[in-house]
Design a protein around this nucleic acid. Structure first.
Lengths: 333, 333
DNA sequence: TTGAAAGCGCTAACAT
DNA sequence: ATGTTAGCGCTTTCAA
């Protein structure tokens, strides 16, 4: 039924080894025989079986990617970066959603190891001891993308979230807002902690006592941005600037404020985080922190290839540069 | 180094066959031995090798998903539907981006077949003869998702794009606009053709001569929406309503119009297509055609499982229902 | 209920 | 430059 390397060998009057050599581009084949083999491969419509190859060679040229939610505009951009570099290095991606659910995450890691992936790019929230243990049992390299592991055990690619949040908050303070509000998320990930820490640092450096009521926790969704700004507006002393931990929530904040009759940025300045495509798809356009999602994915995958090839790696915790981009949701000087 | 089924068998004093049976949940194992085996699996930290299993059983429990661009808000939603159902049926997904590039598409199909996927969910634009041939050489089932094959050779899941476009155009006509404009895309996919046909049908039924200058072709991007509306506004006789073939372009149209001082919907009514999350993330919120992306992905994957299990399939071309949702970018009665 | 053994299709020494 | 052969780790008859 299906054509195997054996069939090709027989038809071409060579050994399996020779066929294998031409299929794998091994130079130790006489051009004439190579041609002959190539021909009969063509004729028989032979298609190498990657599973058999994987078993024999102990390499599958596929890597696992565990992602919270591929339908998120943030993660899908990351995934694209991963995939492009994977393709460049001839790897395929097994992609699975974890919904940041610990059980699922652990289970997925296991499944991917069963499938003998050559490496894993992991995106998630909390990196627990269990995760690290699971990673250790893997005989393959793992790289975290946009995911911070406070123990620094696992190689990772991130930006400096603390510093970025600090800068954004400071910009708002510089615009004359004594104590900008902060809309963040409930999940206690290290990334969120860092953003929070950066915000706090800026507030405190400004000699402010931290007003807890100006810190609202959402869930990174647009709707939770709307809810957050409504709570903020309801405050006795409503803030005149908000730093929001994601662009999607920031759009919610902007629209929620506009729906209540506020003018952005005159009544309320809004600063986002991520610079997803959403940031320019809103009026006024959103000032935000540029987090290079695509690059994080790409660099993470590139790093993984180095580990998979057992290349020397100088820096296992890569921090990519971020920057602020001021658009129209904040005032210009 | 790595623990194999053989090691487990030896330690547990049973045969490999028995270990295989308990791993695969075969009931023909005495509870006592099952327990014994399970214990030593635990002890040794045995992890079944899915590649070996795949070679022996000729099933990999992984399916291929070929997608134009995972970072698109439209396709990533589809992908999530596919993945969720795949997980439900214990399949993993190999996900690859094609960028609608024919070479890449054909190459990806081949790669996935080499990897011995049990089936393929395909999303793309033009389904050429080459595609169909390629699919035929596959010994595994293929299902198209949000992708129409005019020859109806390959099973598929879609909505009725022609009818949907017709309805949307008609709504605009009913609102008193003699000849709404149409912003579509240049690529000549069957899906686009259907949308175009629906638009034309509505225009013609309204006894209009088709004004070509009111049909603008973009590339489904936000920016091309902006460009499109600028062209339309520049027209001598500018249209007062636009039907746009995707939500993302529709946002561009809305913002482009607003930037030119037009009021939506009073000066210009805008109707979108897809009902991506973007539709509610804009002011005014976007009236649009509800295309159930997630469901299309989910149903496509479900259909694929039926083929993979060799179940009876009654309907190989599934048309899911669509509907219109009127929000604030069009006038209410 | 359990075991023995023959593959699955390929790679990778090793030999020639 | 080419061939031989022993696995890779598992499933699956077939026997017992």
């Amino acid at each position: 039924m299906t054509v195997t390397i054996y069939d090709v060998a027989r038809e071409a009057n060579v050994s399996m080894a020779t066929v294998s050599r031409v299929v794998n581009g091994n130079p130790n084949v006489k051009p004439a025989t190579r041609k002959k083999v190539l021909n009969t491969i063509q004729q028989l419509g032979y298609r190498p079986n990657a599973v058999a190859r994987g078993l024999a060679s102990k390499k599958t040229t596929t890597v696992g990617a565990i992602i919270p939610d591929i339908s998120s505009i943030f993660f899908s951009e990351l995934a694209r970066g991963i995939e492009d570099i994977a393709t460049m290095y001839k790897y395929n991606i097994i992609l699975s959603n974890s919904d940041q659910n610990k059980e699922k995450e652990l289970h997925l890691i296991n499944t991917m190891l069963e499938k003998q992936v050559d490496g894993i790019v992991y995106m998630g929230g909390v990196i627990s001891e269990d995760h690290i243990n699971q990673f250790q049992t893997a005989s393959v390299p793992v790289v975290l993308a946009a995911t911070v592991d406070q123990t620094e055990t696992i190689p990772s690619v991130n930006i400096d979230y603390e510093e970025a949040a600090y800068e954004a908050t400071n910009l708002l303070i510089d615009h004359g807002h004594q104590h900008p509000a902060f809309v963040t998320a409930t999940e206690e990930t290290e990334m969120n902690n860092q953003k929070y820490a950066g915000y706090l640092r800026a507030i405190k450096e400004n000699n402010n006592e931290v007003k807890e009521e100006r810190i609202i926790k959402g869930d990174y969704s647009y709707d939770s941005g709307i809810e957050a700004i409504e709570q903020l507006i309801a405050l006795e002393n409503r803030p005149t600037a908000v730093f929001v931990a994601s662009d999607e929530m920031a759009l919610g904040v902007i629209h929620g404020a506009q729906d209540r009759g506020l003018d952005i940025p005159n009544d309320l300045e809004v600063f986002g985080f991520d610079n997803t495509r959403l940031a320019t798809m809103v009026r006024p356009t959103l000032s935000t922190i540029v987090q290079p999602m695509y690059d994080i994915g790409a660099v993470a995958m590139r790093l993984l290839t180095k580990y998979m090839n057992k290349e020397e790696v100088t820096d296992q915790s890569i921090i990519l540069p971020h920057r602020m981009i001021e658009r129209n949701s904040t005032k210009s000087e």
